[in-house]
């Protein structure tokens, strides 16, 4: 696993209709209308917000590698496609088990809570009441303090119980053996320091970035099983509020509230002192995320069916091409149709 292969998978899904930087915004989890739209139209939810701090140089390196290997090609208008050679490579890549759309980097908060809990239990077990916390973030410290406050941490058997619960979670998550090693060595405790990415890379003979990606994937896998495992009580508490609860941006949520109160787009724009186009972006987001979005208020069912049929016929989701076919419809209407009727929500 490495950034290039993930990028290749993404480019393949984008289907020659976007520039390579759509992949960058996707991985960083950019919450703009365009990126959110892409996520839905092209089925890219697993990769959304996977690397919120991804640097453009790192991304460019990965992209250039793909070009050098001849896996991708860019057209004159900068659109990027997967070549025959790239398709061959794709067929031998393992499948990924990321759930970026649900976690968006917040899995690291869960990891922070977990490391601090393990470090605390490990020190208490060794009879140490004071130690330098591995997490400096106040929110994480407060969370763990509150969590441990109501638990029998002084009971000598309790830390083992934590260990057992974690063991069950790890097994159930079906992470690979390598991921299990990485995961447990990113935990630290009394007399046992954590391993840096470089140290793991050195001893496992892997690229540090690859290890990081494997770690993120293992967290996503673990979080997913925790969610449905009522017997893993402590882990469930640690995972509280990690999964994104509202897929709408904060601003879109406000717009939705006003819309639900019966206000029109123009009225909302005036009330919120925002441009009409911004409010329209919010509506597109709503059409993507809310299964009960009232599409018929904006466009007729007949027109909707016609657009979807044309989209399948042309094999494209590019708005400009669809607009040429449906001159009477606005871009806004087309985006709403695509939002409500394509992707997983359809």
């Amino acid at each position: 696993m490495n950034l290039s292969s993930i990028l290749l998978t993404i480019i393949n899904k984008l289907d020659g209709e976007r520039t390579i930087y759509a992949g960058f915004h996707l991985l960083r989890g950019k919450r703009s209308g365009q990126t959110l739209q892409d996520v839905e139209y092209y089925g890219l939810k697993p990769f959304f917000g996977l690397l919120p701090k991804l640097r453009i140089v790192t991304f460019d390196e990965a992209a250039n590698r793909l070009i050098e290997l001849g896996y991708i090609a860019t057209s004159d208008d900068s659109l990027v496609t997967v070549t025959e050679k790239g398709r061959l490579e794709l067929s031998i890549l393992p499948s990924y088990r990321f759930y970026g759309w649900d976690y968006r980097g917040r899995e690291m908060i869960f990891y922070g809570r977990l490391t601090l809990t393990v470090q605390t239990m490990s020190n208490i077990r060794a009879g140490k009441k004071s130690f330098m916390p591995i997490q400096k973030d106040m929110n994480i410290q407060t969370f763990v303090k509150k969590l441990l406050y109501e638990l029998p941490i002084k009971n000598p058997l309790f830390s083992r119980q934590v260990g057992e619960e974690l063991t069950i979670g790890i097994i159930r998550s079906e992470m690979s053996d390598l991921q299990k090693v990485i995961f447990t060595h990113r935990l630290a405790g009394y007399g046992l320091s954590g391993w840096t990415w470089d140290q793991l890379a050195e001893s496992l003979k892997l690229n540090p970035f690859t290890i990081r990606l494997m770690f993120i994937e293992s967290l996503h896998m673990l979080l997913t099983v925790i969610e449905s495992s009522t017997d893993l009580q402590l882990l469930q508490k640690m995972a509280a509020d990690i999964k994104v609860s509202s897929y709408l941006t904060e601003s879109s949520t406000k717009t939705k509230r006003l819309f639900d109160q019966g206000m029109s787009i123009e009225e909302i724009a005036t009330a919120r002192q925002l441009k009409v186009s911004t409010i329209e972006d919010h509506f597109v987001e709503m059409s993507i995320n809310n299964t009960d979005f009232p599409l018929q208020m904006f466009v007729s069912e007949e027109e909707t069916i016609a657009v979807i049929a044309k989209m399948n016929e042309l094999g494209t989701k590019r708005l400009r091409l669809l607009k040429d076919e449906f001159k009477s419809l606005t871009y806004f209407q087309l985006r709403l149709i695509l939002g409500a009727r394509t992707g997983e929500g359809a």
């Binding site: 393990v118 447990t184 046992l192 050195e202 001893s203």
Partner: peptide
């Protein structure tokens, strides 16, 4: 001394008992 990772279950036992 070339750091060698532990088996994952051993590591958890060392941390938490």
């Amino acid at each position: 001394l070339a750091k060698r990772p532990l088996n994952w279950t051993e590591r958890l036992i060392e941390l938490l008992g």
